[in-house]
């Protein structure tokens, strides 16, 4: 499945916040069908790059294209509709909805069951089988009836992944999907990402380098908003500049 055809490419992305350059001239291309890691020390600009790629922020300069379309001028909802769907670093669930409802919300739009204000709530039950399947895939079946706010942090992350997968997107952007998870859950989510990546592309931010080494086909290293290195994990980890950038943040 690994191809050399870029599904997402960004050229010269720059983001300035009132004079502070958070992302500087980033050129990045993610090949279709790969798992691509974006790593770097805290504050490197990884989340900002995600915000730019999904149009939650408008780049000061630069261009983004997804599946051959220029998406630089699109609104974030339109980017998601094209099949480029993100998760958030700070767990984003609908806290007072149940786990099942969280996933159903994601399913409603693709199933064209989101605008019917005249239908009873029970009409959403046609989504249940698929929703419970997704919930099962992230091992949350036992909690399907709980409200999301009752879940532990790690389980909220798992729910967020299930919700993202509900859209069946061509490409997933995952911002530290395993942060706050225990050992066992990390293994499970890594397996899940490997599985779902069989027929889609994943770009993920991850601090756990073992996971990156194990899971990702390609790694891009960002430091102080700039790309430091790009290539296979072996290439990147041998790069002296990368080692230097990680000095002092080794306690990660």
């Amino acid at each position: 499945m690994v191809s050399t055809q870029p599904i997402l490419s960004a050229t010269g992305l720059t983001m300035e916040f009132r004079g502070f350059v958070a992302v500087k001239d980033v050129t990045l291309s993610v090949n279709e069908g790969t798992i691509h890691a974006l790593i770097g020390p805290n504050g490197a600009g990884k989340t900002t790059v995600f915000n730019l790629l999904t149009k939650f922020l408008t780049p000061t300069r630069g261009q983004i294209s997804f599946r051959g379309n220029d998406i630089t001028g699109l609104k974030p909802a339109e980017v998601a509709r094209l099949g480029l769907v993100r998760s958030f670093q700070i767990s984003a669930v609908f806290p007072h909805l149940t786990v099942l409802d969280n996933v159903r919300v994601a399913l409603q739009r693709p199933k064209n069951l989101a605008t019917q204000f005249w239908l009873p709530f029970s009409s959403l039950s046609v989504l249940d089988d698929r929703a419970l399947e997704l919930i099962d895939a992230v091992n949350l079946s036992a909690y399907a009836h709980l409200t999301a706010s009752e879940l532990s942090y790690g389980r909220k992350r798992a729910l967020e992944i299930a919700t993202t997968l509900a859209l069946d997107p061509a490409m997933l952007l995952l911002d530290e999907p395993m942060a706050g998870m225990g050992h066992e859950d990390i293994g499970r989510i890594a397996d899940l990402i490997r599985r779902v990546a069989k027929n889609r592309t994943v770009l993920m931010v991850e601090h756990n380098l073992n996971v990156v080494a194990d899971l990702c086909d390609r790694v891009t290293v960002l430091a102080r908003g700039e790309i430091l290195s790009d290539g296979s994990y072996a290439t990147v980890s041998a790069d002296p500049r990368v080692r230097e950038a990680y000095m002092g943040t080794e306690h990660e």
Binding site: A77, V85, F88, A92, T163, L167
Partner: peptide
């Protein structure tokens, strides 16, 4: 934000 990211 989450709703937007789901394409709404």
């Amino acid at each position: 934000r989450r709703a937007v990211s789901l394409g709404y």
